[in-house]
Nucleic acid binder design. Structure first.
Lengths: 204, 204
DNA sequence: GGACTCGGTCAACGCCGTTGACTGGTTGAC
DNA sequence: GTCAACCAGTCAACGGCGTTGACCGAGTCC
């Protein structure tokens, strides 16, 4: 009888979840890192939709199935590639009276091109449930938790979230729609105009 | 000889573009309208990604290929289903000193659930080039053209576009991310807080 | 009545994310 | 030293996607 007698079948303990990262041999850990690096590159270069699992696998030099086995799904892999980018944290921790303009200046800084790619990839994946939840969590943890306790007046948490709304809206027009009017505007003008609008919500 | 002698072949005049709407017989015009209606329904119900061409065709009772033949592509069909929704135009044409709050109240009005679906579908399709261009055009035609001529001070066009940025950001947090803080906030509070922030850009 | 065009179907193409069956190599207990 | 268990990885396939091109039947026009 070919392929051994009887059914080998092992134990097969619920083959649904991705492989456990904690118990990996060095080889597995290396290819896992390679996949993650390839994903980071391609998601940034092409966006969430256009960066296919197959392309990521090719870039990493492995089989597409291995990508899924390691991370569970394309969405979960994408979440792993989102670095928290602590840069904005420092801006938020600065003087509250100037956060508005400093925030806009941070996101418009041409020295930080990764901001653009990160936003575009996130915006494309925002309709996936896990991604959406991660964005909500990030907003609460990074913006609300830092700003609200230092603010004064009523509706502190709501006002902190409205800061995020304004930032997202600006990045949307700039990076996704590439609106010619706002894209062609002077950086200093945007920082002053939009920064003050944001500031008005923070410290009215 | 079956199927006629020789190659029929007709003339086949560049079979790349979709069928011309102007010269349609009644039957064609009817099914075309049915496809458009089905698309409108499914795009609103499921969003751009989840509303497949096949599902739209089934809903309309036709073959999926016919959808493409009529409209050229899924993206083009989607653009056809975008009604300009003149509602916001009336808001923008009202008194300039109160546009901020009235805009927010308009978009938060629970009597207007279509606003939510329209935004979600648009946001999901925003990474397609034609859709992106349509959004830019809509911003310029609906917002900038109405607001900028009535404003005072410098950078009128930029400031008008920044109003769009703020609105988009709010809708993003409300409808796409469904942020619990802003979703749970009182409507009147949001109208006052965010409306005044918008107003600050319009009439500083 | 024949050429032509329109309305429509059908089968397929090449992609996509994901799954399950399978092969080997490594490990660890006896 | 053996052998079972397990990790790493491949392979072929599934169902679904948007889109294409070949094809047919019915209507229209000269």
């Amino acid at each position: 009888m070919p392929y051994g007698c009887g059914v080998t079948k092992t134990s097969s303990p619920e083959r649904t979840a991705p492989v456990d990262e904690s118990q990996l041999r060095p080889a597995g850990r290396a290819t896992r890192a390679a996949i993650e690096a390839a994903a980071r590159t391609l998601f940034a270069e092409r966006g969430f939709e256009a960066a296919s699992v197959r392309a990521i696998a090719t870039e990493a030099g492995v089989d597409p199935a291995l990508v899924i086995r390691h991370f569970g799904s394309k969405e979960a892999l994408f979440l792993r590639t989102l670095d928290t980018s602590a840069g904005v944290g420092a801006v938020l921790d600065g003087p509250l009276e100037t956060v508005g303009r400093r925030l806009v200046a941070y996101f418009l800084d041409p020295e930080r091109p990764a901001v653009r790619h990160r936003y575009l990839a996130l915006a494309q994946a925002a309709h996936r449930d896990q991604v959406r939840e991660e964005m909500v969590r990030y907003t609460a943890e990074t913006y609300v938790a830092r700003l609200a306790p230092r603010m004064e007046g009523a509706d502190r948490e709501v006002r902190a979230v409205l800061v995020v709304a304004q930032i997202n809206g600006l990045l949307n027009l700039l990076f996704q729609q590439e609106d010619p009017i706002v894209s062609g505007a002077d950086t200093a003008t945007l920082v002053a105009l939009y920064g003050d609008a944001i500031q008005g919500v923070l410290t009215p």
